[in-house]
Simulated assay, not measured.
Amino acid sequence: MTTHPLSPVTPGSLSLPMAIPFRHRTFPPDDMPTRYAGPVHGHWWARAEEIGFTISGRVRDRYHLALRCETCGHVHASRIYTLMAATPQCPACLVARLEADAEAAGLMHLDRDPDHRHYSWYGAACGHALRRQHEIVRRVARGETELRCETCHAATEAAEAAARGWTLVGSDPQGNPSYRLYAHESGCGGEQRIARANMRTGRFDCATCGCGWAASPSYLYAMKFTLACGREVVKAGYSRDPLSRLIHQLRIDRAMPCRILSMVPIDTGHEAIRLEKSLHARLRRTHPDAIVDPDLYRGQIRVRSEIYDAKLTLLILTLLSDLDRDAPED
């Protein structure tokens, strides 16, 4: 749980007044720290009154003034340069606006982030403290976006995994926000990347001890087709039975010349699909011009992508051959 550095929040505590140390307290002129003896020039007075402040005196050093806000009466120290060249903000009025924005968003403003002026700590209804950008909270208040508690969300994901006999280990080691890393608690104990949507629906299998395609032996393959227009194309993919996939799934026109060029055995379907995705990503990145328009093979090959010009045949076979050489011997 991420905790607020000044006032940690516990479930149920947000309904009670919270003692939050205020970083910008009002101080009367007689008690100002390190008063500085020096004149207050007339043009300083004029500028302060123009933007809604009254000068209460000089403090700290020759560079600072004490400004009293005419709206709320709060006194704060401000640099003379800021007063003259910009528009200083009253810290109390700023916090009041943040508190109003937080209330409109269903939150409680706890304290401003001392490390970043655009962020604050907020108390959520669930009892957890959240660090959020001020603009995000305003967008939540306007109904333009929603706010999610990371602690509660992680608990929900852990519960989803536990209901299916898995343990949530953490985020995806490959950085995909749609995936998580899980351990098969009720099975082999092995760790596996699984899409969170699949964990919720149960549409997955353990790649180590499962009995579905993910755990079954598979193949990476390369196939060659000759289209009706005479153009030769090559397809790379994976399947537990490449010959059956070619004859019964991919080929629509039974008279179309086609054949399997290479098959590389892979221990599991889970590993095969990982390698296949990596292979296609590389081909799309390095040879985008070799991707064949699906309109050319529509009605002849039952796929919508992953078909390349035959000029990539040698490269695909080389990549598959490298995988075959890297495979461990029995």
Results as ranks from 00 to 15, higher is better:
residue 303 V to D: 13
residue 208 T to I: 14
residue 61 D to Q: 02
residue 182 Y to V: 02
residue 192 Q to W: 12
residue 75 V to L: 08
residue 67 L to F: 00
residue 250 L to K: 06
residue 8 P to H: 09
residue 218 S to P: 09
residue 167 T to R: 05
residue 304 R to D: 14
residue 300 Q to V: 06
residue 299 G to T: 08
residue 226 T to D: 06
residue 103 E to L: 08
residue 55 I to K: 08
residue 32 M to W: 05
residue 315 L to A: 12
residue 294 P to C: 05
residue 230 G to S: 09
residue 286 T to C: 08
residue 38 G to A: 14
residue 223 M to C: 03
residue 86 A to F: 15
residue 240 R to W: 00
residue 39 P to D: 15
residue 183 A to M: 00
residue 50 E to T: 10
residue 225 F to D: 10
residue 184 H to G: 07
residue 147 L to F: 04
residue 301 I to T: 05
residue 288 P to T: 09
residue 193 R to T: 07
residue 64 H to C: 11
residue 107 L to R: 00
residue 232 E to H: 15
residue 250 L to G: 01
residue 93 C to Y: 05
residue 254 R to D: 14
residue 9 V to I: 13
residue 304 R to A: 13
residue 131 R to G: 00
residue 152 C to F: 00
residue 128 H to K: 05
residue 306 E to R: 01
residue 135 E to L: 08
residue 73 G to V: 03
residue 306 E to G: 04
residue 329 E to A: 13
residue 210 G to I: 02
residue 39 P to Y: 08
residue 210 G to Y: 09
residue 50 E to D: 11
residue 43 H to L: 15
residue 256 M to P: 06
residue 212 G to R: 15
residue 270 H to W: 11
residue 129 A to D: 01
residue 98 L to M: 04
residue 1 M to A: 09
residue 23 R to Y: 08
residue 254 R to G: 15
residue 216 S to E: 15
residue 169 V to N: 05
residue 304 R to G: 12
residue 224 K to S: 10
residue 37 A to N: 03
residue 309 D to I: 02
residue 55 I to A: 07
residue 282 R to Q: 12
residue 14 L to H: 14
residue 95 V to T: 08
residue 64 H to Y: 14
residue 35 R to D: 04
residue 158 A to N: 00
residue 21 P to G: 11
residue 220 L to W: 01
residue 55 I to T: 02
residue 198 N to Y: 02
residue 252 I to R: 13
residue 280 H to A: 11
residue 211 C to L: 11
residue 80 I to A: 14
residue 321 S to A: 15
residue 32 M to V: 04
residue 262 S to A: 14
residue 302 R to K: 12
residue 124 A to D: 03
residue 255 A to T: 15
residue 243 L to H: 11
residue 92 A to P: 00
residue 225 F to W: 13
residue 24 H to W: 13
residue 207 A to F: 09
residue 110 L to A: 03
residue 240 R to Q: 10
residue 243 L to E: 12
residue 28 P to E: 06
residue 29 P to S: 13
residue 155 A to S: 11
residue 280 H to I: 11
residue 165 G to W: 12
residue 294 P to L: 09
residue 225 F to Y: 15
residue 127 G to L: 05
residue 317 L to G: 15
residue 68 R to H: 00
residue 170 G to P: 04
residue 17 P to D: 13
residue 205 D to Q: 02
residue 106 G to F: 09
residue 246 L to S: 06
residue 19 A to E: 08
residue 154 A to H: 07
residue 330 D to H: 12
residue 7 S to Q: 10
residue 263 M to H: 06
residue 296 L to G: 02
residue 252 I to P: 03
residue 266 I to L: 15
residue 152 C to S: 02
residue 48 A to T: 03
residue 125 A to K: 04
residue 222 A to I: 00
residue 171 S to V: 08
residue 292 V to H: 02
residue 321 S to R: 04
residue 20 I to G: 02
